[in-house]
């Protein structure tokens, strides 16, 4: 780790002013960022500690939603009574990820901004366009079992590793950000971006902007939801494939459905047109297989991760059944419900 300057921001304005250069970083829980410093992946000149900012609360929004402060920890969010009751998929997704210790330290804002787990991103002796622009992609033709199958480019096949964001994606949350030029709102679907030819840009934040909150809309889909995560061990591992499903059912028919995939793309992967096609359908294996094929349409494997294509297809079908039946995947019983 290289020496850096550390400043503690006293206010939001203070924080935004202190982070003047692209090489400066905000730091909150630090569960990912500190590792990146140690691996020499990130080389901060200045760290702006935002932990004292008043962004650590969960508040009711007018119209029935909830505002999750960006400094609320993942654990506080997952165990919040309002979240558990109204947005159980969010609680479930968070609890499927990391460990209790990490969730206690990691914040909601940090979860949105965590970096990929691509092996080449972390290994500074290897090429990686995301870490070192224009150095090449080591994962293509390399060890790419954990890499993506959707939304990739010739420059990068890294995935976004969050579980929480996959749930946020199907809840259509709004990300509140502040910058020196003012505040703005980014819909979750537009927050993370595809690599294209600039894989070093994970998201659409502008330089110096800070996430202040995540707004959950009123509709929480508490009756029909699931977060199904498949991984190499039963706990404390990143998803090979995960699926968040929420549904609104009426008289046994699907009235509305939203499905997002995790572990397979640079962002939670949704195809709204395919979701629309589920409306009015009666849950069945055929319907869900058709939907799964539409959701993973265009998926491409890179050798080591070819298995993610059939795995994603199977996981989507299973998760849709779980949500439709109102039997969500438990995160403590490790058998697939």
């Amino acid at each position: 780790m290289r020496p850096f300057q550390f400043v503690r921001a006293k206010s939001l304005n203070d924080a935004l002013t202190e982070r003047a250069n692209p090489s400066d970083h905000f730091i909150a829980g630090g569960t990912n960022l500190v590792d990146l410093f140690k691996y020499d992946v990130e080389r901060p000149v200045k760290l702006v500690d935002i932990n004292r900012l008043p962004l650590g609360e969960i508040r009711e929004l007018h119209g029935g939603g909830l505002r999750l402060g960006s400094l609320v920890t993942n654990a506080e969010t997952a165990y919040d009574a309002r979240v558990k009751e109204r947005y159980p998929i969010l609680s479930s997704a968070i609890l499927s990820g990391a460990s209790a210790q990490l969730r206690n330290a990691a914040t909601n804002g940090g979860n949105l901004n965590q970096r990929t787990r691509c092996y080449y991103f972390y290994n500074v002796a290897s090429p990686c366009n995301k870490r070192e622009p224009h150095s090449g992609c080591g994962a293509i033709g390399g060890v790419n079992r954990v890499n993506g199958i959707l939304g990739m480019s010739a420059a990068c096949i890294a995935t976004h590793p969050s579980d929480m964001c996959v749930a946020l994606a199907v809840l259509n949350v709004q990300v509140q950000v502040s910058g020196r030029d003012g505040d703005r709102v980014i819909p979750i679907g537009e927050y993370h971006r595809l690599p294209e030819d600039e894989p070093w840009r994970d998201n659409t934040l502008r330089p110096g902007e800070l996430v202040t909150a995540i707004d959950l809309p009123a509709q929480g889909f508490a009756d029909h939801y699931t977060y199904l995560k498949l991984r190499d061990r039963q706990s404390y591992a990143f998803a090979l494939v995960s699926v968040a499903v929420v549904m609104r059912m009426e008289a046994g028919l699907i009235k509305e459905a939203r499905v997002a995939l995790g572990g397979v793309a640079p962002k939670p992967w949704r195809i709204p047109a395919a979701e629309t096609a589920l409306e009015g359908e009666s849950p069945s294996r055929d319907v869900f297989i058709r939907f799964a094929d539409a959701l993973i349409d265009g998926a491409v494997g890179h050798g080591g991760n070819d298995f993610k294509i059939p795995l994603a297809r199977r996981a989507i079908v299973r998760a849709c059944h779980q949500a439709a039946a109102g039997t969500p995947q438990s995160q403590s019983d490790k058998r697939i419900a």
């Binding site: 199904l228 498949l230 039963q234 795995l311 199977r314 996981a315 079908v317 299973r318 059944h321 490790k334 058998r335 697939i336």
Partner: peptide
């Protein structure tokens, strides 16, 4: 083994 996903425990 879950026959749908082939998840193994």
């Amino acid at each position: 083994v879950d026959p749908d996903t082939m998840h193994l425990k």
